[in-house]
Structure formats: C-alpha cells, structure tokens
Write a protein that binds this DNA or RNA. Structure first.
Lengths: 216, 216
DNA sequence: ATCCACATTGTGGATTTCCCCAATCCCCGC
DNA sequence: GCGGGGATTGGGGAAATCCACAATGTGGAT
C-alpha cells in the first residue's frame, strides 16, 4: 500500500461516507486521513503535508465552502475536491472559480473521484515544488542589501556596469563589487543565470530594455 | 458609446434574448455582434477580433458546448461566458474545467453578467498581448539556424564562450560570431536581455546551471 | 566608545566580450 | 557548374568583466 504520494484528507460528517471513502482510497494505495468536521480538520492539519482535500459541502457547524475560504485566507494551497448532495449550479461555479479542483455530486462515481483526486495530488506536488523554488529565490533576494537590489535591477535591465555607475552616480568599481556580491548571494555565476533564477520570482522592473532592431 | 475595447459576441437562438442582451451591452458602451446559431457565429468569426463570447448552452443544431469544443480545437482562445436555461452541475463543472469564464443560469442578473463579460474582455486583451509577445519571440527564434539555436541554449545555460567552444568542438571565434548573430537576430543587446526575452517562450534546456553556493 | 554591516573607491592585471576585416569549406538549388 | 547561405577560423584591437589586495566613511547596535 501507499504506492502514491500525498495524503487524501476526507472531511465529511457522515460516518458511512467517511468510511466508504476511506476504504476506497486506502484500497487503491493512498494514505488517508478522515475528519468528521471542518473544525476537526482545521485543528489537525499542519500545512506541511502534501495532499488533497475531499470535502463535503454541507456539514453541521462550518460548511465545506467556509472551510475552503478559510484555508485560502491562510494561504493553504491544498487542492480541494468538493462533494455535494444538494448543491446548485451557482455554488459549483463559484467554488470552481475560486480554485477548487472539482465539484462532484453525490452519489458519485468511484473511479471519477479517484481520478480527480489523483490529479489533485499531482498538482499539489507540482505546486509545492514551485512554491519551494520561489521561496528559495525569495530567501536569497532577501539577503540582498537595498543597494544591491537596486543594482541588480539595473543589471537585469541589461545595462553595463558603466551605465549603472552613471545612473547611480557611483564609481564603476563599486558597481563591480555590488555585482559580484549579488551573484554570490544569489548563488549564480553569471548575469544570465541571475536573470533566469529571478524570472521565477516577480520583481518590479526598473529600467526597461525591450527587444528591438531587425527582426523579420 | 464604445468606450470599451473588444466585441461582445452573443450567440443564442432566442430572438428576444439576443435583442435583450444586445441592448444590455450596447447601452453600456460595448460593441456587440449577435448570431442566432453556433454555425452562424463560426461562419462569421474571423479570429482576429478581441472579445468575449456569450454563449447559450442549448440551441438547435450545434450546441453551445459543442461550439466551445470546436473553438478550442481551432485554437481560438476567446473567453466564453455560458448562459444556460436547463443546465446541471456536471455540465457547469465540465465547462469551467475546460476553461470557460463562467456558467450562468437564466434568468440572469444583468450586472453580474456584464461584470463577468467585462472581466472576460480584460482577460482577452491580456491573453492577446501575451500571445503576440510569445509569437514575436517565436518568430525571432525561427530565424536562428540550428547551430545558432544550439549555441544559444549554451549561452542561456550561463556558459562562457570558451566552454561553449570546447563543448561544440569549435573555435572560440566561431562561438563569438554565432553569439553576435543570435543577439542581433533576437533583437537584444546582451545575453541578459536574451535570457529574459526567451524566458517568455518555453525552450528545452540544454546544459543546466542551477543555483548553488552559499544561500541562507 | 566600539564593533559591524553597508556603501564606497582605487590599482592593476587576467580573462572575456565585442567587432571589423577577411577567408575557406560544404551543401543545395537553379 | 555557379551562386549563396551556413559553419568555420584567424588577426587584432577597443571595451568590459572579474578579481585580489587594500582602504575610508557612515550609521546603527552593544
């Protein structure tokens, strides 16, 4: 068992459905965690586990929709598959537009649900990788001093040290020092790599340097 | 009138609804084009017009859902807002998952529809800008000879001309020539700009050069 | 008062980039 | 066969990058 990565979090107030879903996913090799209410899930989820949330829309206490909103507020990017017994179109549409992976009516088709959960787990893996990558870059960027950040943007604008020096009214030598520290702190060995690494993140551009010239 | 960019394409077999929608959008300053059937729209749409498609799901002949599929097949990225009189949740969900902007039940709220269409038009503008930008880069990339493409990837891997020369078993001088032509053809003036311009596109990486070194 | 991070500047030299001029070789199509 | 585009290589020089060694000034924290 557990031939699949990530955990399937099942939140439903109906014992029978919880058990049935648990069995369904466990029998297919997924790690499963069940919770009888939104509150119970919130109390237990630590945010560090990759997975997918299978969420009943209507439950006593906090509804699945409310839980979803709260998770989004908290920046929890866990993909969610909604299960609904008495949903309507606006509810489904609004859920999907907010980013839910799917909105499935009960009774549901087992294979369909499993497929969607499997896809959700893949997405979460990918999301976490991207997140980690962005975070790593952000962490490095955070090490740069204000001045270095300033110089970096000019470098990314494709300007030569000479030009940067003029614009910042400092000597070229100083720019070189900054440049060197920037590359070192960002863990790259050239401005080209810097551009690629930073392009993952989103920085406010400084001096533009769009493409022109010949072309076709 | 016409204070808004883009055209609202209305496709519905019901004359009354078509007129009503036409009036609704025209009165708010949108350019409107109506069609009584999916076939009529297909015959008239030229693909070069920015806009948003307001599409009735159920129509005699080709349904709105079918039309949407066909448009996607043809690579027409026009954003679509579905209108439905007798839709169900699976239909709505599948539409949205396929990329529709919204799925609204009749009778609909005028303001809600207009808001969604307005957002769709904004998205289409942006999409077209991105598309144009990607296309421009692709066009330039297409001008590169195979060898130049090869050299470019090594440049983007952050390698020095010296290293590139070794790897390709050619002289450094030749690499310089290639490099120069590449920058010229791509319309940039430095490798950094090249990296940024190309990053918009998606190229298969050649020799990796990830970030390492210090860090936190 | 002292320590430290940050910004700054210099000298000088090794390495690289960028470019003009010029030339050879090969393959492909007219 | 001839012309032309693409790939290749050289010479040589101006400009820029990269770096090691060395130093000064400023502002905040201890």
């Amino acid at each position: 068992m557990e031939k699949h990565p990530g955990t399937v979090f099942i939140v439903d107030d109906d014992d029978a459905i919880r058990d049935s879903l648990k069995w369904l996913f466990q029998s297919r090799g997924y790690r499963v965690e069940t919770h009888p209410s939104a509150e119970a899930f919130l109390g237990a989820y630590r945010g560090d586990t990759s997975g997918c949330l299978v969420l009943d829309v209507r439950m006593p206490g906090m509804s699945g929709l409310e839980l979803y909103d709260i998770l989004k507020e908290r920046g929890v990017g866990l993909p969610v598959v909604f299960l609904s017994g008495h949903g309507d179109i606006p509810m489904a549409v609004s859920s999907l537009r907010k980013g839910a992976m799917d909105f499935i009516e009960k009774p549901f088709n087992d294979n369909e649900l499993v497929d969607r959960v499997a896809e959700s787990l893949r997405m979460d893996e990918e999301r976490r990788r991207d997140e980690a990558s962005r975070h790593a870059v952000a962490e490095r960027l955070a090490q740069l001093t204000p001045r270095e950040l300033e110089v970096m943007q000019l470098i990314l604008a494709g300007k030569h040290n000479k030009v940067i020096a003029d614009e910042l009214r400092i000597s070229m030598r100083t720019v070189e020092v900054h440049r060197s520290r920037i590359l070192q702190k960002m863990g790259v060995r050239s401005a080209v790599e810097l551009a690629q690494v930073v392009s993952v993140s989103d920085l406010p551009p400084a001096g533009p340097a769009p493409m022109e010239g010949p072309g076709h």
